[in-house]
Nucleic acid binder design. Sequence first.
DNA 1: CTGAACTATCTATCTACATAGGTAGTTGGT
DNA 2: ACCAACTACCTATGTAGATAGATAGTTCAG
Lengths: 196, 196
Amino acid sequence: MSLRYALLALLTAEPLTGYDAAKRFGGSVGHVWHAPDSQIYPELRRMEKEGLIEGEQVRWGPKSTKTRYSITDSGVLAFREWMDSPLDYAPVRDAAHMRAAYFEWADPDSARDCLRRHIDHYADQIACWTVVRAAIVDATNATIAVRLRKYPAEEHERIVAFKAFAYDGLIARGEVEIEWARKGLELLDKVSPEKY
Amino acid sequence: MSLRYALLALLTAEPLTGYDAAKRFGGSVGHVWHAPDSQIYPELRRMEKEGLIEGEQVRWGPKSTKTRYSITDSGVLAFREWMDSPLDYAPVRDAAHMRAAYFEWADPDSARDCLRRHIDHYADQIACWTVVRAAIVDATNATIAVRLRKYPAEEHERIVAFKAFAYDGLIARGEVEIEWARKGLELLDKVSPEKY
DNA sequence: CTGAACTATCTATCTACATAGGTAGTTGGT
DNA sequence: ACCAACTACCTATGTAGATAGATAGTTCAG
C-alpha cells in the first residue's frame, strides 16, 4: 500500500507521467521506497480509477501522446489521512543479521567477505544519501526546488528540515551498520585469525 | 529464498516438526527472519522433495502422528553454500523514513505520535533482544543450549559470540532509530511547537 | 469427564514484488 | 538519413508473503 502513498507524495509536488514517476524511484523517494515501473504503471491506473489522481493526455512529438497524472483533492485528502494514521511495522527480515548469527557455519573468509560487502554497501548508500541531502539543503536538487515553489518562503526551511531529517536517519543507520560490520571483522580476527 | 535457509539453520541444531519450527519463528530466528506457519509447512514439504531435509513420522498420542524433519547431508551442504555465497541486498522500503520526509503534510501532533510510536516500537524490540541476548550468552536459552551440545566446549564461546554479535547489531540499530526519532521530536518542537 | 488451551497440520485467497521481457515513438548527434 | 539512446508505456509469469480461516487430535487442570 505504501507505493500508493509514495506516488501521491511525488504528485503533491508536480504532475508526472508514469515514466517520470518511475525515474523518481531511482532517486528522491527511491531512497526510502523502491518500486519497479512494472508496479508503477498499473498502480497509477488503479489510483486514477479510484479518483486519487487524474490523467490527462498531452502531446508528445508529432504523432504521439503521453499521460500526465495530477493529484486530485481526493488524493490530497487520502495522502493527508495516511500521513496522520499510525504506521504499522513490517516484520523483520534481515538476511545479513541472520547470516551473522550462524557464522560458525561459514568459512571465516566468506564471513569476512560478507561483512566487507556490508560495509561497502552502506558506504555507497551513505555517499549517495549525503550528496542528495546536501543538494536538498541548498535547493540545487531539482525535485525539491519544484516542490518549494508551491510554498511561501517562510515554510521552506521547515520542509527542507524534514527531508534532511529523513536522510539523517538513513545515514545514521548506515553508519551503525558499518560500525557493526567492523566489530564483526574484529571478532572474526579474534576467534578465527586470517591465514597469512 | 531466505526462509529456506532460516529453516535449515534451525534444523542444524535439532530435528523439528513444522509446528516447532513455526514457534521458533516467534523467537530465535524470528528476531531476524519472520515467517507465518502457512509459509513454513509448504516450504518444508518442498525442501523434503528436494532432499534437503527428511521427514519421519513419529507417534503423537494414542491415535496420531506428527512429521519430524531432520536436515540431510545435502541440506547441510546447501546451507554451507548459502553461508559462503554473497548476500544480495533488498531494495529499501522504509515507510517510517518516507513519512518523515513528508512531515509537512502531517498534522504536527500526528507526526509526534508517529515518532513516539517509533521510539516505543524499537524500545520494545530492544528490551526483547537484550533479554534473549543475555540468555544466549549465559546459555539459559534452550535453543542455544541444544545447539551447543553438538560442539566441543572450546567452540562454544565462538558460537555464542556470533549470536551475540548479531543481536548487538539489532540493538545498535534500534538505538539509532530511537535517537533519530528523538531528534525528530526536537525538530518538531522547534518548527511547530506543541500547543499548550 | 469436561472444557480450555495447546499441538499439528492444511487450505485458500490476495496482494506485493521481482524478473524479464515487448512495442513504438522521440530526440539528438554524425 | 540513420543510429543510438531515451521516453513512454504495456504484459506476463512467478514467487513471497499477508491474512484468515478450517480440522482434528492432545494434554491437563478443575
